[in-house]
Design a protein around this nucleic acid. Sequence first.
DNA 1: GTCTATAAGTCGATAGAC
DNA 2: GTCTATCGACTTATAGAC
Lengths: 213, 213
Amino acid sequence: MTHSTQPKSPHRPRKEKPDKAQAILAGALQVFTSHGYAAASMDRIASAAGVSKPTLYSYFQDKEGLFFALVMQLTKNNRKTLFSLPTKSNLQAPPDKVLHQIATSVLTEFSQNQPLLTLMRLIIGESERFPELAQTFIREIKKPILEKLASYLASQPQLNLPDPMVAARIFIGSLVDYLITQHIMNGSEILPLEGDRMVDGLVHLLTVKAGSR
Amino acid sequence: MTHSTQPKSPHRPRKEKPDKAQAILAGALQVFTSHGYAAASMDRIASAAGVSKPTLYSYFQDKEGLFFALVMQLTKNNRKTLFSLPTKSNLQAPPDKVLHQIATSVLTEFSQNQPLLTLMRLIIGESERFPELAQTFIREIKKPILEKLASYLASQPQLNLPDPMVAARIFIGSLVDYLITQHIMNGSEILPLEGDRMVDGLVHLLTVKAGSR
DNA sequence: GTCTATAAGTCGATAGAC
DNA sequence: GTCTATCGACTTATAGAC
């Protein structure tokens, strides 16, 4: 008996109900985020999504494809939200107010958005296996934010920042490290630090001078 | 995938060589860091360590125990190195020189120490499954460094830093985010930025004299 | 070396829409 | 009837553990 290993051409989802694909992605989100990539089983994902495994495989080529699609969707979904952060406030306001507002928005958005934190954890943790995902995140989310922020900083000559892009990276980098340390690595008890205090110090540093505040 | 061709000594199993534990940890380092926790197999680790699986299990209780022991050892091994970074330079020198030296040391140490970067990636990636490891890293490494740096910053009144601990977190956080973005998430091509430029900007920001407005 | 559990991925059958 | 989305049951490989 020979079972020919015919090149599997699994059914491509043509115009099926988007519900199922969404349900699968929702289940995948839960399982991947609570177990990590490798420890997540397709059985569990199918179960969490309320579909059978064959159905799952009819929508996504394999486990890697599903993970990839999930992270790409999360990235896309959060792209607009995050990109708008640097311009949520009135840019005509004094820079220290603007920066304060931006930093607070970033911390609030991430603190209230657990899937977003989880996305960061997954992307970092699996960056060896899926280097493209990390790079996509940087290209689609981090880079635009940094460029917009750097552009704003450059437009405020009174801030006297000789290298706006580096200033932007310090600003965002400090906040990202804060989020990773406090909320991903569970450092709140060991290194307690209120978000507001962090924001105040950060804004103060960038808007240095004897006068503000 | 190569089978070790070293002569397998069939002598009675005795625990007389503490080297074995080290060999296992070395093998575990390679396998865990290149595959992640869940995707690393005990077979592969045993093979990489040049021991049999029963030997492996005689030294470590199970996979979790081995991973835990590995991360704890790496943390311990790097503790002194990292903790000494903030005091490598002459603390009597001008603060901008001292901070420049510290930042450069941090970037150099991590850039030349791939296992250290990998340790960070593993700790972050597995922080859901092993919260204690992330917390240990913070307690044993990050916290001492931040406290030492904050103490130094506080001792330099001319820096005029109202919140030295927050300044320390911005300093270290910026560097950590830089390392994660460039070297763990492979962002160098997308967001190129020389380490020296980052260091210069960071030091400049912290050492700006009041009244420069 | 061996044992058991569970993983990823596949196949034949079924049920409803037209 | 046919078409197509779906699923229960299966295969094969490899994991952890002893």
